[in-house]
Simulated scan of single mutants.
Amino acid sequence: MFIGEYTFKVDSKGRTSIPALFRRELEEGDPKWTGGQRPKFFIVYGNASKKFLEVYTAEAFTKLSNDILALPRGTKKRRMLERLVLGMSHPTEVDGDGRLVLPQKLREKIELEKEAYFIGAGETFEIWKPETFEAENAATMETWLEELPDDFDPLTLLSDNEG
């Protein structure tokens, strides 16, 4: 499971370290990985409304792909998912130094410059421009907290079936 948050520098070639705990999850999530090899994973970037890149292990991406391909052929839902997820994803691997090389196109999509912010999301993790995450997170939290009592305990959401 991907948990925690980390910030790393990005060099001019788009290389950035991957958090060590995330690298272990990427290794475990690549069924073909064995010690000494580079784990493979997928970066999904197709949703234009998302201001971040979403990273899947090889295993999680295969499951997602199978779910998409299980939809009826020719349906709008399947065509959208084929384009936004399958078509607009970047297969890659951890390099020999434990880094990720982000292509220019992906860096431009999220306006990534000198630093990358990584945040775990359970089955996936996200890569953000740190300032964008701070602004988006502050706005989201403010909206959420306006709807809740001052003594709100986030763990109470586990028993809430409203979604």
Rank of each mutant, 00 (worst) to 15 (best):
M1N: 11
F2Q: 03
K9R: 08
V10N: 13
D11S: 10
T16I: 03
T16Y: 09
S17W: 04
L21Y: 10
F22G: 00
R23C: 07
R24E: 15
E27S: 04
E27Y: 02
E27Q: 12
G29N: 12
P31M: 00
P31N: 01
K32A: 15
W33V: 01
K40M: 14
F42H: 15
F42R: 13
A48C: 10
K50S: 10
K50Y: 09
Y56L: 01
Y56T: 01
Y56M: 06
T57L: 03
E59L: 01
T62G: 07
T62Q: 12
K63M: 08
D67Q: 13
D67L: 03
I68G: 05
A70F: 01
L71P: 03
L71Y: 05
L71G: 00
R73E: 12
G74L: 01
T75M: 00
T75S: 02
K76Q: 15
R78E: 05
R79C: 01
E82A: 08
R83A: 14
R83H: 13
V85H: 02
V85D: 05
S89I: 05
H90C: 05
H90M: 09
P91K: 09
P91Q: 07
D95E: 06
D95T: 06
D97G: 10
D97W: 04
G98H: 12
R99G: 12
L102W: 00
Q104S: 02
K105W: 09
K105L: 10
K105E: 14
E108I: 04
K109D: 13
I110N: 02
E113G: 09
E113A: 11
E113C: 09
K114L: 12
E115F: 01
E115P: 14
E115Y: 02
A116P: 11
Y117A: 01
F118W: 11
G122Y: 07
G122D: 14
G122A: 04
E123V: 09
T124E: 15
E126P: 03
E126K: 14
W128S: 08
E131T: 14
E136H: 06
N137F: 13
A138S: 13
A139W: 00
A139E: 12
T140F: 01
T143Q: 12
W144Y: 12
W144Q: 14
D150A: 07
P154E: 05
L155W: 11
T156S: 01
L157T: 12
L158N: 14
L158P: 13
D160Q: 03
N161L: 12
N161A: 09
G163W: 11
G163C: 06
